[in-house]
């Protein structure tokens, strides 16, 4: 292993944490307890998106991905808890 740059070691950390959390999402049997692992996965993917291609539009893409997956988790959790009717 010759000289690894800072960007490469950071993206390796992000991607390996993403793969570990994906395995744990699949392995967890309780539906509600899958969601925190899914959150870790989306953090890792959003971080590696920014490290993969440093461009001013990448931050828009990473934020859009993160907000999208958070909204998805919110919808899944609320729907599992009984729909938006008992929200508030």
């Amino acid at each position: 292993m010759e000289d690894i740059t800072t960007q490469e070691i950071a993206i390796l950390v992000c991607v390996s944490i993403g793969v570990i959390s994906a395995v744990r999402v699949i392995a967890e049997r309780n539906t509600m307890k899958k969601l925190p692992f899914l959150n870790v996965l989306s953090f890792a993917i959003a971080g590696s998106l920014a490290l993969l291609l440093p461009d001013p539009l990448t931050i828009l893409a990473a934020a859009a991905y993160f907000v999208g997956t958070t909204l998805e988790s919110n919808a899944i959790a609320s729907s599992y808890a009984g729909g938006p009717k008992n929200d508030e």
Binding site: N39, G47, P54, A62, F66, S73
Partner: peptide, 23 residues
């Protein structure tokens, strides 16, 4: 649960780090 269901300070820290890294 709040961290999962809405972008809070942790998401802010990550996206700010991405923003500082890029621009």
């Amino acid at each position: 649960g709040n961290i999962v269901c809405s972008p809070d300070a942790s998401a802010g820290t990550l996206l700010a780090a991405c923003g500082v890294y890029i621009a």
